[in-house]
Amino acid sequence: MRQRHTHAQRRSSVARRDLPFRVAIRGRRQHNQGVKIAVCVKQIPDPANPGRLDADGKTLARDEKLILDESDSYGVEMALQLAEAAGGEVVLVSMSPTGEVGGIRTALAMGADAAVIISDDALAGSDALGTAKVLAAALRRTQPDLILTATESTDGYTGTVPAQIAELLSLPSVTFAKSVEVGSDGLLVRRQAEYGYDEVACPLPAVVSVTAGVVEPRYPSFRGIMAAKSKPTEMLTLAGLGLEPSEVGWTGARQRIIDVSPVPERGGGEICEDDGTGHERIVALLEELKVL
């Protein structure tokens, strides 16, 4: 059920579909084992360093140290808060073509309990759908009650992976969450919208994408950093997930990168002389930008 929080209320619903994990969740909750939350995380080149392209000139070079995508840190924080409040565990799921784990360790140091990493040479070049297939296959094995993701990665920006994962797993998908509550009947999500927020009720399991900035990601404690190395980390290959190399990577990608060009230089902006009507021009500009 969705409630739009504006003057006029609108109701809609998220379809309850065939839920493959429902039995597992009921069992776990009946045994008071708490909620199992999977967070999909991505490791990306440090945005603080100048980006480089691979030799093919079409993809970002990832041969240096990778870090946890900051946009994922909000999902990790939200998952930790939910698990702390309701009891349960947080499992990270990540695709790491190069086998790099530095960024995942950051999330483990924040407090996540375990990680599942899919590393395989054949993953290089995967598009959004290929990525979603791999993550969905790993999530199917992990059987979480709730799957959190960022709304989009900082290096890829497609913003489609969360919905694709939900579709592949036949799970409800709620996007742009600003808050998530886990109740006995399922989830209550406040979903950010231009006009305010929607309240969306939805059964579990579900895939929820978390908007950046809605929680304050904690810094890992020294003890957390020291413990991260010894936390359970499962390394999987495509074969281990029952996926064929042809489904992912360059060969499986239905998206082709035709060309990459530099971002145009920023323009000089518009300078308005204030002849007493400057405020009107500012208001008009903000309206144009749909800020007002």
Partner: peptide
């Protein structure tokens, strides 16, 4: 490597 991570956490903050 661990020492670098500890220092980096403080440095980021």
């Amino acid at each position: 490597e661990l020492a670098d991570e500890l220092v980096a956490a403080v440095s980021t903050w």
